[in-house]
Amino acid sequence: MKRRVKTMIGSKNCDDPIIDYKSTEYLEKFLTPQGQILSRRRSGFCTQCQKQLKSAIKRARHVGLLPFVG
């Protein structure tokens, strides 16, 4: 029996994602309470979008818009 994935936050947005390092409220959805980036399985993004998400979150962290640790 296959395990069901609990959350697929990004699956609806994957067609036309607005991933920008300045949109912190959107990026925060893809962080755990500890500040870690959600895996592709939990975010529901495709490979390309997950890569964009990763770089956007890291840019936002660099300029102090998002924390490194929750």
């Binding site: 300045k22 962290r61 102090g64 818009l65 998002l66 924390p67 490194f68």
Partner: peptide, 17 residues
Amino acid sequence: RWDERRLAYPMKRKNRA
């Protein structure tokens, strides 16, 4: 000017920028 806001962590002993 994009914004003036609180930083997620202090930089050079500053909390806002």
